[in-house]
Simulated assay, not measured.
Amino acid sequence: MYKVAILLTRPMAESIFAEEDLADLRRFAAINDPRNLPEVLTADKMLELIRGADACITCWGTPPLTPAMLAAAPNLKLVAHAAGSIRNLIPPELWQTGCRVTSNAPVIAEDVAQTVLALTLTSLSRLWENAAATRAGKWLGGEANVHATRRLNGLKIGLIGFSSVCREVIRLFKFFDCDIRVWDPYVCPAEMRRWNVTWMELDALLAACDVVSLHAPANPDCRHLLNSRNLPLLKDGALLINTARGLLIDEPALIRELQTGRIQACIDVTDPEPPAADHPFRSLPNVVLTSHVAGGHTLNGRKRLGANAIVQTHNCLVKGLLSFEIRPEMLEHMA
């Protein structure tokens, strides 16, 4: 029987694991009891739990793995990360051991894409403003023509970064017969044609699209992709959505554009987080600011994270198969 170390806090384990999924895990592996996990996981506790393990499951709240932990688990074959980004979890030394790595980024991508769709539909329908008006005692029905609304069907959608989230967004928005444009300097335009979308240079995309959604990674070369030079290219009435990373946008430059009132923005991520109490994103009427909740935080979706980590662990240990395997050369272009 294999040994699988569950390297989570107890609240996180309770959040992502269903009892039936843990029962499946116990059928092929000895595990540490999630009920005995600490409220806060320390490196010392991780070192104790990972000793002699064949695989480990990590998530939000798991401290970075260390060379000492790898030395304590010389037969470690898999790190199954039940969250998304592994950027701050995996030490460089791990890649020399033959241990494989996977994450739940594709699962979380579904949540993020649904959030992007929800933000798009509610913003185009001006539901935020209408709800604020009714709370203020007004009743501005459609016949009042106060809030000019738009339907999603047929609009030009610009997606920045051909990530797993971007691909899920494409799947959802295709139902609305949208004209989808994508910019990603590392993706071949031929691949875009396979997805039946149009590759477009960034400046042209910003100028052409009714909705622009960011899906690029938080890498140095992506810092301030949108800035004082290209944000003015956004067409009047455009909707800008950022559910990726705050550093992708030069916030002072975006604030200046928003203050003109000519565009809308839905912002789920900022740089830094949280934004200051007096940050303009909190008060501008044409901004919807949410607190980094786009992906992985749905009550029913959380259990999928745990179940998928267990499935990947089983497939890797028992069959040698692994979905969404992460290799070191991929990190440069990942969140």
Score class of each variant (00 low, 15 high):
32 N>A: 10
95 W>T: 09
261 G>C: 12
194 R>Y: 08
235 K>T: 05
226 L>D: 00
87 R>I: 08
81 H>A: 08
136 A>Q: 05
136 A>I: 00
85 S>D: 03
228 S>C: 14
154 G>V: 07
213 S>M: 14
318 V>E: 05
69 M>N: 07
26 R>P: 11
271 D>I: 01
247 L>D: 12
304 R>P: 01
262 R>W: 11
298 T>A: 13
278 D>M: 10
297 H>W: 10
280 P>L: 04
155 L>P: 04
248 L>H: 03
123 S>H: 10
181 R>M: 13
216 A>S: 15
184 D>C: 10
144 A>N: 05
13 A>E: 09
295 G>E: 00
335 A>S: 14
22 L>Q: 13
333 H>C: 10
238 A>R: 02
88 N>A: 12
315 N>T: 00
185 P>A: 12
200 M>Y: 14
124 L>M: 03
138 K>L: 14
270 T>N: 00
133 A>R: 12
311 V>M: 01
116 V>C: 08
25 L>Q: 07
323 S>G: 14
26 R>M: 14
7 L>H: 07
47 L>V: 02
211 V>A: 11
27 R>D: 15
245 R>Q: 04
160 I>H: 00
119 L>D: 02
190 A>P: 13
91 P>S: 08
15 S>P: 07
70 L>R: 01
263 I>R: 09
276 A>S: 10
257 E>T: 07
38 P>T: 05
51 R>L: 06
327 R>S: 05
52 G>A: 05
335 A>D: 08
158 G>N: 04
30 A>Y: 11
64 P>T: 10
31 I>P: 08
1 M>L: 12
22 L>Y: 09
265 A>L: 03
73 A>R: 00
64 P>G: 11
150 R>T: 08
